[in-house]
């Protein structure tokens, strides 16, 4: 039996369930295409805001033993005008899905960014309401307040016809409250999860290592946090979920699909396993499916919610 790795996210077909997560080697069209060439099913550009941002001073990243890392890049990006050109360029060079990602400092600006970014005609728009690394500038992320999250969702929906995915933060008391709020406000999908707040101090110099002092934890360490968020949101809402957080192997991807994700993001694994991790993880997924008699990804999605399986 032929194994079918394809899946769909808000009606957009993905040839496999692996999506390049926003912020990891994806600031230019060429970088997005490089990930597709290495097997990604879809790619998300790094978060874009209206004006260019240099981001935080380096060090912006710190690798942590056990396939994890702490980052505070500070949302560097060339601004909407240039990023829209990069997205257009990417769209012109491939038929695979290209996903935009926007963030902003106010509800109005989210609406404006959604309208502008739609000019590039991306397949989907992810909305980053949850970056933990710019709180000094932007205040508590919109992701922490269900009313604000809903307002952002409505503002984005009013300004585009392209399906939108709201990216949720795990750094909240109850993620399902936010998930329900954005669903009611018209979100077409959600991403679970952005990075988990964290910090590392160098004991020799008694200094925080990354220049922003605090940052976002990603990779292996946050996988259980992501799985729980996906599992609980799957029960709470009816819109599709893009799982993300700590997917390093085929088995990790299967786990998030079973929790209820229709596709999974890949970020930190690019550091630990190389840019060709997409091909490797797809192969591992295929092997798992072969061994366990699954023919399509669709059979796996949400399986953990059914009792007495296997």
């Amino acid at each position: 039996m032929e194994i079918n790795l394809s899946t769909s996210l808000c009606g957009v077909r993905l040839r496999n369930p692996l999506v390049l997560a926003s912020g990891i080697v994806d600031t230019t069209a060429s970088a997005l295409l490089f990930a597709l060439k290495n097997g990604a099913g879809a790619v998300i550009i790094k978060s874009i805001c209206p004006e260019p941002r240099t981001g935080h001073k380096e060090p912006i990243l710190h690798a942590i033993k056990g396939d994890s890392m702490l980052n505070a890049v500070g949302l560097s990006n060339p601004g909407l005008k240039i990023a829209v050109e990069e997205l257009k360029n990417a769209k012109s060079r491939t038929k695979e899905p290209i996903i935009a990602n926007i963030f902003a400092s106010s509800v109005e600006e989210f609406g404006y960014s959604a309208k502008e970014v739609s000019r590039a005609n991306p397949d989907l728009i992810e909305v980053n309401i949850s970056c933990p690394n710019v709180e000094d500038e932007f205040g508590k992320p919109f992701s922490c307040d269900p009313d604000l999250a809903a307002e952002v969702t409505r503002a984005v929906k009013e300004n585009t016809n392209i399906p939108i995915i709201i990216k949720l933060s795990p750094n909240v008391a109850n993620i399902t409250v936010i998930a329900k709020a954005v669903e009611q406000a018209g979100a077409d999908a959600i991403t679970c999860i952005n990075t988990v707040g964290g910090m590392v101090i160098d004991t020799k110099t008694a200094q925080p290592i990354i220049s922003n002092k605090v940052g976002g934890l990603s990779g292996q360490a946050i996988k259980p946090v992501a799985v729980k968020a996906i599992y609980e949101c799957y029960k709470a809402v009816n819109i599709p979920i893009l799982g993300t957080g700590g997917v390093m192997t085929g088995n990790d991807a299967i786990e998030q699909l079973m929790a209820g994700a229709v596709a999974v993001g890949i970020g930190t694994a690019i550091y630990t396993r190389g840019i060709d991790c997409f091909d490797k993880i797809n192969q591992e997924i295929e092997e798992f499916m072969q061994e366990n008699n699954y023919n399509s990804i669709k059979e796996i999605i949400g399986l953990a919610h059914k009792e007495n399986k296997k």
Binding site: I24, T28, S30, A31, L61, V73, G267, I270
Partner: peptide, 12 residues
Amino acid sequence: GICGSCCVDPTG
């Protein structure tokens, strides 16, 4: 190899 700031065109 994570942040993408050093990527070149058109190979990425």
